[in-house]
Design a binder for these strands. Structure first.
Length: 602
RNA sequence: GCCGAGGUAGCUCAGUCGGUAGAGCAGCUGAUUCGUAAUCAGCAGGUCGUGGGUUCAAGUCCCAUCCUCGGCUCCA
């Protein structure tokens, strides 16, 4: 096989393979450029990633964004030199010695990690100097550096050697590269578009939510955002109750015993907010005394275990489906917080289904129908993944066989294509993950279905079966939106803030052309309000053009413009956010239209 | 938490070498009564994230701290 074609089989398509090769090769070019600028730079790894590449570099000086143009310039020179990529097989010991002599300790560590007798090296000889850049690399690469013209460096950040916080902190330089100038431009344009849709920009702009430094990681939902939140949560609750769920509210603060039982205290303690029950003033040695330790729940499942366990249960009751939108707190690392997508306080459309093993397939099949319906209503598509038993799992193989079989069966019944991620399940059970795609084609993890054999055991849960003996129920953890916070963030970006009428916090804005139409405008406003429309009235004495412009900025779906013509005819002049001027409509017809579009489509 | 960048009026941003804090939009007041994406004028708005320090003098320099942002999964 040609050197440049090695590894083709691992990719889905020629296109994907070529992009990988291009990206990985450009990472080498960047490494060479950086080494020209900082000869003592220690190279770590430089893989291709989705849409680009990065290279991790150990360097005492910091590389800042201002250095990127210098690096790019150097890279352009290397591209122009059109150096070949030449593969060589080296004896591992020889390679280790070479890299050690050149101060490349990470490469030495990598070679030791492989444990192979030989390693492959890629050389980039330069015609202009004796300088030969070489790097430990599995390959493959494009034939020459001249193949990597359309790149751009994007950002620098920190990253740990081998993703381990106890190891050296390296500097990671990210870049992107494409086969053609057009593709590069398109990608950069997409980045710009995504920036414009960023929920952290649009959210405050549209008065949906705000953040404050005194509540890091927790959102303030302002009236318009609260309306969206409430629309989604109320509808979801109704839908689930219609589908045989019971809806509950459960406590926020618990004795730590609950989490000792659930396992969170042992495995999740660093993410729990906890405190002593006794009354303490600042400076007291708070939790060292003998008072009880309380913790805020990070998940609802332990509460639902208590509810199930509070009564003697019969197989006739199963499945028991408990829905709970309880407020959850997780003490995420300060550096990981981000807008609404990574928060410390949130709510989920959470539910736990307690059932027997042979009910799993039916339950999951029903969920697939719900998930399909809901994401369809938002115009979003999704991909499905089945994650199977990992190596360090709990429970015997027979149980896993049955559970994985049940999930697979449910997926088949749903008719959805799905991919299997072998070994990617949780230690306590297999799961189904959903990648939801927004309007920009970006994937988000929202819905999830996870089987759990362990938690019911930890809580000693049982039900009496038809055979009059005790059985342990299986628990299905499931969410459709996932966290409302994250889901609304996804929606804001999906719609770019231009929500459909049924979700829009302000559906119609009535506006007057002049003072002369105040009275008729007021009537229209009242009529819409009486019909249950989310309507506001702009009776300011600004010019109509100004009002339209302002309203457009707030992405209100409909403007009802009221002037003297409308007063005489008893109509409204309607301007749609998406379709522009719709002309005159009878008031009743307009009300009907808006009310129709205000129906929640799931 | 760690590495890097940032924080100036409600928002977007300017502020040179350390020498009296600026603009546009938004807001308020007044005028204007107007037909589909910005009417005019005036006024007000600031402990420059917070706390220390250096200096005759700090938005600017130094230290600490908080928050926000880019990352810390993609394994040569």
């Amino acid at each position: 096989m040609e050197d440049h074609e090695k590894g083709r089989d691992a990719f889905e398509s020629d296109e994907a393979f070529k992009l990988h090769r291009l990206r990985h090769s450009t990472a080498h070019i960047m490494a060479q450029a950086i080494q020209r600028l900082w000869p003592h730079a220690k190279l770590a790894i430089g893989p291709s990633i989705e849409d680009g590449f990065y290279y991790d570099i150990g360097l005492p000086e910091t590389i800042s964004e201002e250095d990127l143009p210098r690096i790019e310039q150097q890279m352009k020179k290397i591209v122009k030199e059109n150096q070949p990529f030449e593969r060589e097989e080296w004896d591992a010991e020889t390679a280790k010695t070479w890299f050690a002599e050149h101060g490349q300790k990470y490469k030495v560590e990598l070679i030791e990690g492989f444990g192979d007798d030989t390693v492959s090296i890629y050389k980039n000889p330069s015609k202009k100097s004796d300088d030969v850049f070489l790097d430990l690399c599995r390959g493959p690469h494009v034939p020459r550096t001249g193949n990597c013209k359309h790149f751009k460096l994007l950002k620098v950040s920190g990253a740990y050697w081998r993703a381990d916080a106890t190891k050296d902190q390296l500097q990671r330089v990210y870049g992107t590269v494409w086969s053609t100038r057009e593709e590069l431009d398109q990608y950069l344009f997409r980045l710009e578009e995504a920036k414009k849709r960023d929920h952290r920009r649009i959210g405050p702009q549209l008065d949906l939510f705000m953040l404050h430094e005194w509540a890091p990681g927790s959102a303030f939902w302002l009236p318009k955002g609260e309306h969206i939140y409430n629309t989604l949560s109320t509808r979801m609750r109704g839908l689930l109750v219609d589908n045989g769920y019971m809806s509950v509210k459960t406590p926020l603060v618990f004795d730590k015993s609950l989490f000792e039982t659930s396992g969170h205290w042992a495995h999740y303690q660093e993410n729990l907010f906890h405190f002593a029950e006794g009354h303490h003033l600042e400076g007291d040695s708070d939790e060292e005394d003998d008072s009880r330790i309380l913790a805020m729940k990070p998940m609802n499942c332990p509460c639902h275990m208590l509810i199930f366990g509070a009564k003697k249960r019969s197989y006739r009751e199963l499945p028991i489906r408990i829905h709970d939108q309880g407020v959850l707190h997780r003490n995420e690392l300060s550096g990981t917080l981000s807008g609404l997508t990574r928060v410390r306080q949130f709510q989920q459309d959470d539910a736990h289904i307690f059932c027997s093993e042979d009910q799993i397939a039916d339950e999951v099949a029903d969920l697939m129908v719900l998930i399909d319906k809901i994401y369809g209503a938002f115009g979003m598509t999704f991909e499905v993944y089945l994650s199977t038993r990992p190596e360090d799992k709990l429970g015997d193989d027979a149980l896993w066989d049955q559970a994985e079989g049940a999930l697979a069966e449910a997926l088949k019944r749903s008719g959805k294509e799905y991919k299997v991620k072998e070994g990617d399940g949780a230690f306590y059970g297999p799961k189904i993950d959903f990648d939801v795609y927004d309007a920009l084609g970006r994937a988000h993890q929202c819905a999830t279905i996870q089987l759990d054999f362990q938690l019911p055991r930890r809580f000693n849960l049982s039900y009496v079966g038809a055979d009059n003996s005790a059985h342990t129920p299986v628990v299905i953890h499931r969410a459709i939106f996932g966290s409302f916070e994250r889901f609304i963030a996804v929606l804001i970006e999906h719609y770019a803030g231009a929500f459909p009428v049924w979700l829009a916090p302000e559906q119609v804005r009535v506006m007057t052309v002049s003072e002369k139409s105040l009275e008729h405008g007021s009537k229209v406003y009242e009529a819409l309000k009486a019909a249950g429309v989310q309507v506001t009235f702009d009776d300011s004495d600004n010019k109509i053009g100004y009002k339209i412009r302002e309203c457009h900025g707030k992405k209100v779906p409909y403007m009802a413009i009221i002037g003297e013509k409308e007063l005489e005819a008893g109509t409204v002049s309607v301007r749609s956010r998406d379709e522009g001027d719709l002309g005159s409509l009878a008031l009743e017809a307009f009300v009907l239209r808006v009310a129709g579009e205000a129906q929640i489509p799931f």
